[in-house]
């Protein structure tokens, strides 16, 4: 096991210990805090698949967070609480929307791609704001958490371990994916797309499928997020949220699987706990911090852990 994989494994074990430790020290709210962290970690991993491995700078990734959330919220609004159904809808609809957005935006590259993905996400945000049935800009309460048979999400600890299991699953799927033939194509596109085309890969279709996989995975994160907050609003899709997820990927280290998880942990704790406790104007600190990370620590926190190169 490489050093980074070992660190990641230790991190996951620590996450598994959060509920008993939180109970022992009488601070159950840490279960909530870290559940939220892990949900964002799944979203960040999904973005990293296209951003870090595929080189696609999608600035609209929060759109799928919102789609996943509404895919749970809207059926629940009509009294459908079956979680298997809701989560399937979340994944399928997110993939379908990613297909549409990708089909338009992947025809372009560079600045265009960034602006278009951002614009489409914002479009969905405004759409959410203008549909009054589902609360418009106020959003709506989730009547009940997704019903998953014997797995009772109303129990905070159970829900916590469901999210942890899905995080581990996302890491495993991501690991298989990036090392598969498909993954090699996606990484080759990032490295040198003209070369990929010259040796015979029709790159567009591979990029599009990668874009869909990332969208689907983030949709699942959205389905988890709405269960966590028990509330859904268009704010889930706001462009600053997309920026947030992207920041997690960079902060942790893009093009690695552990990086987004680490980035999610650090950024969520900074934004949710540490900075707000210090000053209400914490964004004035976070902003320049982000600039500094970009300028001086591009490889992210994971880059601080040296790793032997395997051929």
């Amino acid at each position: 096991m490489s050093r980074r994989a070992a660190v990641l494994a230790i991190g996951l074990v620590l996450l598994a210990l959060v509920p008993p430790v939180a109970a022992a020290i009488g601070q159950p709210f840490y279960v909530d805090v870290f559940r939220r962290v892990m949900i964002f970690a799944i979203a960040a991993i999904s973005l990293d698949l296209i951003l870090g491995y595929g080189g696609m700078v999608s600035f609209g990734h929060a759109a799928y967070l919102g789609i996943g959330a509404y895919a749970v919220g809207i059926p629940a609004f009509y009294g459908i609480h079956n979680g298997w159904l809701q989560w399937t809808i979340a994944i399928v609809v997110s993939a379908a929307v990613a297909l549409l957005i990708g089909a338009v935006s992947l025809r372009t590259s560079g600045v265009y791609f960034i602006m278009i993905t951002l614009a489409f996400a914002q479009m969905l945000y405004y759409l959410g704001n203008s549909v009054e049935e589902y609360g418009g800009d106020d959003g709506m309460r989730l009547a009940a958490r997704s019903a998953l048979g014997v797995v009772d999400l109303r129990n905070g600890t159970t829900f916590y371990y469901v999210v942890l299991a899905l995080l581990v699953l996302s890491l495993a799927v991501g690991h298989r994916l990036i090392n598969s033939r498909f993954g090699m194509v996606v990484r080759g596109v990032r490295s040198n797309e003209p070369r990929m085309r010259a040796i015979g890969f029709s790159t567009f279709r591979y990029k599009l499928v990668a874009f869909m996989v990332a969208g689907a995975m983030c949709g699942l994160a959205g389905a988890l997020l709405v269960n966590h907050t028990e509330y859904v609003t268009p704010e889930f899709m706001h462009w600053t949220r997309s920026g947030d997820i992207m920041f997690m990927v960079i902060l942790g280290g893009m093009g690695t699987l552990g990086g987004p998880v680490l980035g999610a942990v650090v950024l969520r704790l900074l934004e949710d706990l540490i900075l707000p406790a210090w000053t209400q104007h914490w964004q004035a600190i976070l902003g320049p911090f982000l600039v500094l990370i970009v300028l001086f620590a591009k490889r992210g926190l994971v880059g601080l852990l040296p790793e032997r190169r395997d051929g």
């Binding site: 994916l177 598969s180 033939r181 498909f182 499928v209």
Partner: peptide, 10 residues
């Protein structure tokens, strides 16, 4: 085609 998602290519 390279839509093979599971087995390690390396």
């Amino acid at each position: 085609h390279s839509f093979r998602f599971w087995r390690p290519a390396r």
